[in-house]
Design a protein around this nucleic acid. Structure first.
Lengths: 230, 230
DNA sequence: TAACGCATAATTGTCGACAATTATAGTTCA
DNA sequence: TGAACTATAATTGTCGACAATTATGCGTTA
């Protein structure tokens, strides 16, 4: 299963491959946020016809990475503070509920697996090399496991299939590669505990606080950046 | 603004029009749930080319009315009990949060407008003609106003642009045209009161209960239907 | 008879071209 | 000089055809 999106199947059609490539380019900023997309240009760049490219654009629109206006064209979404806030509030609602559902629906095996992942991350945390990478990857792994554990196809599709592309984009663009290491870790631990206790109400509450804290952390970093720029 | 979807702009391109037509056909059951979609057939039926039809199919997929498998084709989604439950749980999360945001962000004017709508519905409720229609329309109007009142583009898009097509489909397919008249009405009243008091926490709680009650109501009706069929 | 394999038919994915709409640049007129 | 209009260029939307993949039906064989 692909690391960056646990719901999608392997790209089989060329439109899928082009979609993945452009998606990466947008998330990592190789295609600038807010920039206009020229269909003929991109089609030439990726060596496909415009029809195929438009199919890829449709999928990019599905996960809110681009916006289209009829008879005008497509633009990459902007990364604004307002957008970040809206995204995290939506995450709070959806992942909170997913966490509640996970507490109700996760299998024993899944819970064991999740605990194993946590203890593995606790050792990986001490590594000096690539700490940031492990922390971000660890955070994503944790959230994906909870979401999938909800066993709710609607929630899984909305969060993993749509929201998380934007989440990764904001993380990349604002340089949030090493967020709140230790505190996030202990928060993860408590959430897993609540799930393990089958306490859906507490699990939801903790997940919502966890995401709200993450949001405030990013807001602070942005405020710092703004202060430095003055 | 169109009654059935307050976020979408008027259909300008032919693909838009075809999308709307097929959407209605699916929601109201003219195209059977679970049935396979033949691109050449539908294209002929709606007098457009396959490219245009595929553009429409992409939008249907965006609001989860059809599912596509690469190299195989599209199917209209099934209306299952499991799907209904998942949908309403997602609604509970998203609309609950939207309601909290509405309590925080709605303008005074919007609140006045919403109260006016409620009192208008209270009189319309006494009408003998088309009671069911007014009740369903009234319910949708209320929910749309709350969602738009959140002033959160992400939430608005997810709920109005995606989930509500499915909600209306389930309502049509299971014949839920006159749901819980009086009780739903008083629940609406209390939610508006909480929003008017700027009590986000209570507003979210009440909206979640309101949707959960609606879910249970539908579950009961389905159980009744199953009992009759035995 | 049932199951496997092959050839055919049908469907989806991709392509290039044309039509319709929008953006651009140049010109005219107040 | 600036604003509005026009003609041109560029972009998006739509179309029909071909290529690749999948489904179907028949014949063969164990």
């Amino acid at each position: 299963m692909p690391l960056d999106n646990p719901t999608k199947t392997l790209a089989v059609t060329t439109a899928d491959k082009v979609f993945e490539q452009i998606q990466h380019a947008i998330v990592e900023g190789d295609i600038l946020a807010g920039s206009k997309i020229s269909e003929p240009e991109l089609a030439k760049q990726y060596q496909v016809s415009r029809s195929t490219l438009r199919e890829a654009l449709n999928r990019l629109e599905k996960c809110h990475l681009i916006e289209r206006k009829p008879n005008v064209g497509s633009r990459v979404v902007e990364c604004s503070i307002k957008g970040l806030l809206e995204l995290y509030i939506t995450r709070e609602a959806l992942e909170g509920m997913a966490c509640r559902q996970a507490a109700e629906n996760m299998t024993g095996e899944e819970i064991v697996d999740m605990k194993a992942m946590l203890s593995q991350h606790s050792t990986a945390q001490d590594l000096q090399d690539g700490v940031a990478y492990y922390q971000e990857k660890g955070d994503l792994d944790f959230h994906y496991k909870v979401i999938l554990g909800s066993h709710n196809a609607q929630l899984i599709n909305l969060i993993c299939g749509q929201l998380y592309h934007l989440v990764r984009m904001y993380r990349c663009q604002f340089g949030m590669n090493s967020p709140r290491a230790s505190r996030a870790f202990s928060e993860h631990a408590r959430i897993i505990e609540a799930i393990s206790d089958r306490d859906g109400e507490l699990a939801e509450l903790l997940m919502r606080r966890h995401i709200a804290a993450s949001r405030k952390n990013i807001e602070n970093k942005i405020a710092e950046q703004n202060k430095l720029n003055q």
